[in-house]
Amino acid sequence: MSDMNVEIDTKQTSHGLNAMVGEDMADIRDYFELLKPSVMRLVVFTALVGLVVAPGYIHPFNGFISILCIAIGAGASGCLNMWYEHKLDALMSRTKNRPIPSGRITPDQALTFGLILSVGSVAMLGTLVNWFAAGFLAFTIFYYVVVYTMWLKPRTPLNIVIGGASGAFPPMIGYASVTGDVSIESLLLFLIIFMWTPAHFWALNLYIKRDYENANIPMMPSVRGEAHTRKQILAYAYITAICGIMPSVLGFAGVIYGVSALVLGVGFIYFSHLVYKHDKGAIAIKSAKNLFAFSLLYLMLLFTLLLVEHSFNILFTFNIIQFLGV
């Protein structure tokens, strides 16, 4: 055996630094930010409502697994969206500090992370819950990343109308986790979010229009004009308000929900009318901001009411012991 003294000289070459810096600048929080936690919160909440509203029984642990997988799948979509749009994100003040444009995570790392989470969440939901819900989750990820982000968003001002479907699927996936299918009830949950999305997003677009123009994203206020957008917002507000009361009309929800949905729907239409009426100056911006804030409140309250009402039904109409699986 020969004696060999090995002298190691660490040399910081530019190649080495480039390879390492991106990887080692990222904290756990940066990876979490890639999942778009604010969107994920809404997805988790609406999926939970779909799961609770669904007829039938799912063990609470499997229910937890379903929500977890849907949340991870939604996070994966957000991550792949950030990977694809990182050059556009660098152009907008709202998004320029995201992990990829700011250099804390490299695009390749984000792509790998997003793909692993996509495949992992779908496989786990299929293996532990059911494959129909898993297929639905896979389709939702595909729809958000490919149909919305890559195809519609850079091409048409109707991007948010058609692409909004991806944000409306989670309650249907939650529902399908229990029943293994699609029903009119789950379609109604989908329709409420689907019809709500354009008014919600276009209200935001009305006061941050310039950001999207800088990034060459064809949003409705920039392409068709603000007057046309205000008309569209009003039309969608009426449709959303009607969809909002339909669960009670069709007997899927009770009187308390129905009355509350009616009042909230009137509020949504009222704030949309203000946006339609005030089209100039500071009051126009204030009206758009008010509508954006109220639209968030509207959806949260509507789904909270459904959740509370059905939770009481589960606890009192059905056997509490059976629900807990004891």
């Binding site: 003294n5 090995v6 002298e7 080495g16 904290d27």
Partner: peptide
């Protein structure tokens, strides 16, 4: 037996304390 001395040049960087902490959190 003669002692062979060989110099290896490694293409590497030294992580700062903050980077090491972040790597640990990721792990």
């Amino acid at each position: 037996m003669s002692i062979e001395t060989e110099k290896y040049i490694l293409d590497a960087v030294t992580l700062t304390d903050a980077q090491q902490k972040m790597r640990r959190r990721r792990n």
